[in-house]
Write a protein that binds this DNA or RNA. Structure first.
Ligand SMILES: [Mn+2]
Ligand SMILES: [Mn+2]
Ligand SMILES: [Zn+2]
Ligand SMILES: [Zn+2]
Lengths: 140, 140
DNA sequence: CGTATAATTGAAAATGAGTTTCAACAATAG
DNA sequence: CTATTGTTGAAACTCATTTTCAATTATACG
């Protein structure tokens, strides 16, 4: 999903199209790593130098609300955001270069049935995050 | 693992046994839900009213360092702590009563092989958290 | 096009969870 | 019992995030 599509989604939801928002949206849409608000701020200011950090926070809020971005949880903190795919997906993180890849299609049903039987829980949702080395970093 | 065992672990690692620590440790060890530092503080003060919030933070830090507790990540925030099991386990959370159950034994190897082949990633770690309704809450 | 309206902006101030500092206190070893 | 060193809570501090506010700007409508 492109930056233009994101801006269109914002417009559809009654939000206006501004230079500040465009810079933030393009930055996140084009970066294959999870970014903190401050990182977004620094990168986006290259596109629109007058950008304020407050606007970054406000834009992240709206993008998350529209499910265009998602929060990435890591040992070091949970304040980084990443573009979200559509539908049910999982995050694959490279421990070395931080590249994030979205992965879809998992079959955890057998595992869930087992857990359900063993604990009595009715499983409604799950959250799987995987880390390792991406193809590039593997070779170094 | 009991509160006494936790205190022993602390002692083994050069930490002293104090009334403040004991209150914090017992509180966490006996609560089957993830607790925020402030929640720990309020609960533990029932056991030791002079307890300061700073000591809660400092004790949580030590317990996490010894892997006796773990951080639980949720939509609403990532500041809650839960007793940790030993070895590789996953968290099962009840959406209604917040009860947390630790579950061990999963076979994700087939899934990981698939992802590895498809993305070129070398998978080194994973993080699975499951939520739903516990047996009790299911019946209501 | 103008113009009216309401959303958006960035700066500055405020908030608040978590951390640091520090002097008093207390657990432990000998 | 005493010396040592870790621990404590209060108060001060930090810093990421939120709120406030007056100025600016996108958009709808004539
Ligand atoms: Mn899944
Ligand atoms: Mn596992
Ligand atoms: Zn988290
Ligand atoms: Zn429950």
């Amino acid at each position: 999903m492109s930056a233009e599509a994101w801006l269109a989604r914002l417009k559809d939801n009654g939000y206006r199209q501004t230079a500040a928002r465009q810079a933030v949206v393009e930055t996140i849409a084009q970066t294959p790593r999870a970014l903190t608000p401050l990182q977004v701020y620094h990168l986006a200011r290259k596109r629109y130098p007058a950008l304020g950090l407050v606007t970054v926070y406000r834009t992240l809020e709206k993008l998350e609300e529209l499910h265009l971005i998602q929060r990435v949880h890591q040992e070091g903190g949970c304040q980084a955001f990443l573009r979200a795919g559509q539908g049910h997906q999982h995050i694959l993180l490279c421990e070395r270069c931080q590249r994030a890849v979205l992965f879809e299609g998992d079959d955890l049903q057998a595992l869930f049935d087992h857990i359900s039987r063993q604990t009595g829980f009715e499983i409604r949702d799950h959250w799987l995050q995987i880390s390792g080395l991406c193809a590039d970093c593997r070779q170094k």
